[in-house]
Amino acid sequence: MSYPYELGGETLWEAGYHSGRLYASLARGAAEFVKLPTGLTPTPQGSCDIELSTFRAFVQGLYTLYSSTSSLVIHGLARGLLVTSLVLLERAGAPITLKPEHEEALREEKAAFARSMG
């Protein structure tokens, strides 16, 4: 069973059911914290539609939180959600700009995540 993330009928991530639902849950919690909507809408068919401009703003807000602190706890809590979101944005053709001090490490993690996200 899967939980696909779709943009305009194109599947950006054919997530496994559990990983897809966990990602959506984490995004909802982070959205509440950064006070931005996620742009992710579950469908009755068991997938998740992405509204790109809203999702991009959410990921930018998440990255702003991540990049504005040196807290290892916040970095650790936010990193998996952020990296997964960055992969989805890249697949949608709408990446955000990362600060030079984060670019290399996040690029390596994005590549690793992208391979495991199929």
Rank of each mutant, 00 (worst) to 15 (best):
Y66L: 12
V59K: 00
L22V: 02
L12R: 00
F58C: 03
Y66W: 12
G39E: 14
K35C: 10
E10F: 02
V34S: 04
G118L: 10
S53M: 13
L7Y: 07
Y66H: 12
T38L: 09
S53H: 15
T38Y: 04
R56D: 14
T97L: 14
Y5D: 01
S19N: 03
K110F: 03
G8M: 02
T11C: 08
T84V: 10
F33L: 15
L86V: 07
E32F: 05
L77T: 05
D49I: 04
T97D: 14
L12Q: 00
I50M: 11
R28Y: 11
P4I: 00
D49W: 06
G80Q: 08
R21Q: 03
R28M: 09
R107D: 15
P4L: 02
A30L: 10
V34K: 01
S70H: 15
E103P: 13
L7H: 09
L52M: 06
L106C: 08
Y3R: 00
G93R: 03
S53I: 07
A112L: 15
G16T: 06
V83Y: 01
T69I: 12
G118I: 07
T11K: 03
S116F: 11
L72F: 13
M117D: 13
F113A: 11
T11R: 05
P95I: 08
A114I: 02
L12A: 00
T38W: 02
L22M: 07
E108H: 12
Y63S: 04
Y63L: 12
T11P: 15
P37A: 00
G46Q: 03
F33D: 13
R79Q: 13
C48K: 02
A105M: 15
